[in-house]
Structures are given as C-alpha cells and as structure tokens.
C-alpha cells in the first residue's frame, strides 16, 4: 500500500481550525500510529494552492494518497466518520474496543 498522505486545509488561526488540527492529530496517532504523513495548509497564507485544490469549505481534509483522492470537510469531530469518509474501515481503537 502507498504511504498515507493527508493534507488539511484551514482558513486562518481560528478555534475551528485548531479544533480540526487537534482532531486530525489524534486520528493520526490513534489510528495510523504515526504511519500517516500529515500536512496543514492555511488558505489565507497560500490561496494559490487552495485554488489549485479547489478548496471551497474549510476545514477540508484531503487524502492525497493512496488514490483515488477523497475529501472530508468539517472540524473532524467524529473520528469514525472521518475514517469512513477517507475510505478506511474503522480501526478498533483502544477507546472503542
């Protein structure tokens, strides 16, 4: 399997952006054990990239690889639904055995 590569697009340093970043970090640690490569892009600082990626809503999380690409928008508050939307069958996590 290709390396898991996720990019999170946020708009500025807002509570919602921080919420999404924290939720993503938790998902990466708990479900992928650090095997996922995660990047964050602030569309206010890098609008050209937002344009190329056609970002409408923020926060938006894109699974860059493995392809096909998948998108989830929102503050990622529900880990199980985020994983399902990214195309992973929910991992049994220590919190939810």
């Amino acid at each position: 399997m290709d390396a898991l590569h996720l990019t999170l697009y946020v708009a500025g340093d807002t509570p919602r952006s921080r919420q999404a970043m924290a939720n993503l970090e938790r998902i990466c640690v708990e479900h992928f054990g650090g095997r996922a490569k995660c990047a964050t892009v602030d569309v206010l600082l890098d609008p050209e990239v937002a344009d190329t990626e056609r970002i409408l809503t923020t926060p938006t999380l894109i699974r860059e690889s493995p392809t096909p690409r998948r998108r989830v928008t929102g503050d990622l508050s529900d880990a199980q639904r985020v994983l399902a939307a990214l195309g992973f069958s929910p991992y049994p996590s220590p919190q939810n055995p």
Binding site: L44, I55, L56, R69, R71, S77, R81
Partner: peptide, 20 residues
Amino acid sequence: DAEGPIAIVGDYDLGGLLAR
C-alpha cells in the same frame, strides 16, 4: 468537484472560497 460529493463531519464554513 469531479471527485464526487464531499463528506461532512462537524462544523465548517466557506473560508476557503472567501480566501480564493
């Protein structure tokens, strides 16, 4: 988007659109 409908998990806004 050609990538199909976007999944929604939690609160969001149109910050990306406004920035662009």
